[in-house]
Amino acid sequence: MLAVDRNGSGSPVLCLHGWPGGVSDYRLLTPLLVDTADVVVPHLPGFGDSFAPGDELRPPSDFSREAMVAALVELMESLALEPAVVVGYDVGVTTAIALARAVPDRVRALVVGNALAPSAFVPAALDLRRRAEFWYQDFHQLELAARLLDGNPTGVRAYLEHFWSHWGSRADAVVDEDLVEAYSRPGAFTTSLNWYRSGSSTLYGALAIAEGGPLPSPVDVPARVIWGAQDPLFPPEFAGQVTELLPQASVRLLDDVGHFTPVEAPAEMAEAVREFL
Rank of each mutant, 00 (worst) to 15 (best):
M76G: 13
P83A: 05
L75N: 06
P59C: 06
L81H: 00
V103D: 09
L72A: 06
A98M: 04
Y89G: 07
E82R: 14
A70H: 09
F63Y: 10
V85Q: 04
A98V: 05
P104W: 09
S64L: 03
E66H: 12
V87T: 05
S64K: 01
G92Y: 00
A80D: 13
D62A: 14
V107L: 06
S61R: 12
R101L: 15
G92S: 05
V107P: 07
A109W: 10
S64F: 02
V107A: 08
P104E: 10
L79M: 11
D90L: 07
V86C: 12
R108V: 09
V87P: 03
V103K: 11
A109L: 10
V73F: 00
T94N: 12
R106M: 12
T94E: 12
S78I: 11
A98H: 05
S64T: 01
A102I: 07
E74Q: 12
E66A: 15
L99D: 08
T95A: 05
D90G: 07
V103T: 13
M68I: 09
L99Y: 06
E82Y: 11
P83S: 03
G92M: 02
A96T: 01
A84R: 04
L81C: 00
T95Y: 01
L75I: 06
I97L: 09
V87R: 03
L72G: 03
A100V: 02
P83L: 01
A70Q: 11
R106H: 12
V86H: 11
R65Y: 11
R65G: 13
A102P: 08
D90Q: 09
L72H: 04
Y89T: 11
A102R: 15
L110W: 06
P83I: 04
R106T: 04
R65D: 11
L110P: 05
Y89M: 07
A96R: 03
V112Y: 04
S61A: 14
V111Q: 08
D62Q: 11
E82L: 10
V112A: 11
V111R: 07
V73N: 00
M68T: 13
P83T: 04
A100M: 02
D90I: 06
V103A: 13
E74C: 07
Y89K: 01
S64G: 03
E66P: 06
L110A: 06
V91D: 03
A100Y: 01
P60I: 07
V93L: 02
R101K: 15
D105K: 15
G92N: 04
V93W: 04
V107W: 07
V85H: 03
E77F: 08
V93T: 13
S61N: 08
A98I: 01
D90Y: 08
I97P: 01
I97F: 05
D90S: 10
A102F: 09
D90A: 08
G88I: 02
R106Q: 12
P104Y: 09
D105N: 15
R65L: 15
V91Q: 12
L79W: 06
D105L: 14
S64E: 03
V93S: 08
D105E: 15
V85K: 02
M68C: 14
Y89S: 10
L75S: 07
G88R: 05
